[in-house]
Amino acid sequence: MQLSIDMDITTQTKGFSHMSDYPNVVLLSQPSLQVATLVSCLRAKLDIPVQQLREVAEIERISIDDNLLLLVDTDNLSATSQEQLKNKLKQYHGMFRLALINLSDDTTMENISTWPSIFGVFNKRDELDVVCKGIQKITEGEFWMPRRTLSSLISIYRSTKAVDLDRKPELTTREQEILRQLMTGSSNLEIADALYVSEHTIKSHLYNVFKKIKVKNRLQAVSWAKESLI
């Protein structure tokens, strides 16, 4: 986080749900001066505590829900640890937000696309103020990533989906209703209120829908819905 990102290519696309007034921000990283500075910046901007984890196994200690924003410092995680974390998070399809920080320049779009619930990406070269501002926007329900990254991710999601076009999954009427609500930017709680069911029921439906349409997060689900729902 040392060089500034070109704001002309930074997209602030409106997200698909809104966190509560008290987002749960968790940072998975090893202690360092850089991390301490980032945490101080976030606490100053968000006015909330930032919980810090050191190991992937500690993920079991946190509550994974709509209020969670998980920040993953990829520079401090081995490839094996990253895969372990992805596998742990896959069961929580669309139930939280994730942002990757300290990405190296050689990180591929294919690698980024395998992370579930991705809402933001930050390069090693990004300045601290830009990272803090981006994370703040994510807590407000927006995406934060370069336009070319967002476009590339959508292309990857669509090409992956195209392989199974001839085998369109059968969705129930309720599952289709939930997908349409998702397209409007509603949170799980807002969808639950609109359909007069519990938030837990919506999470269960989303888990089943994501499995059926073979997507990993809300962005992929909305992309699928825009092309596949009548």
Rank of each mutant, 00 (worst) to 15 (best):
D6V: 11
D6I: 15
T10R: 15
H18W: 06
Y22Q: 13
Y22P: 00
V26R: 11
L28N: 00
S29Y: 04
S29T: 15
Q30P: 04
A36V: 07
L46W: 02
L46G: 05
R54G: 15
E55P: 05
E55M: 13
V56P: 02
A57V: 14
E58M: 12
I59H: 01
I59K: 02
R61W: 03
L71W: 01
L71C: 02
V72K: 00
N76S: 12
N76A: 15
L77G: 00
A79E: 08
T80F: 03
E83T: 04
K86Q: 13
K90T: 13
Q91D: 10
Q91G: 07
G94N: 10
M95E: 07
N102T: 02
D106N: 10
T114A: 14
P116Y: 07
P116F: 08
S117R: 08
I118G: 06
F122D: 01
R125S: 14
D129C: 12
D129N: 05
V130F: 05
C132G: 06
C132F: 01
K133G: 06
G134R: 05
I135V: 13
Q136V: 05
T139C: 08
F143D: 00
R148K: 07
S152P: 04
L153R: 06
Y157R: 11
T160E: 15
K161Y: 07
K161G: 06
D164R: 09
E170Q: 15
T172P: 05
L179G: 01
L182P: 02
L182E: 12
L182Q: 07
G185K: 11
S186A: 15
I191K: 09
D193L: 14
A194T: 12
L195Q: 08
V197Q: 09
K203Q: 12
S204H: 02
S204R: 05
S204L: 14
H205M: 10
H205T: 03
H205R: 09
L206M: 14
K211Y: 05
I213Q: 01
K214V: 04
V215S: 08
V215D: 02
R218D: 07
Q220R: 09
A221M: 09
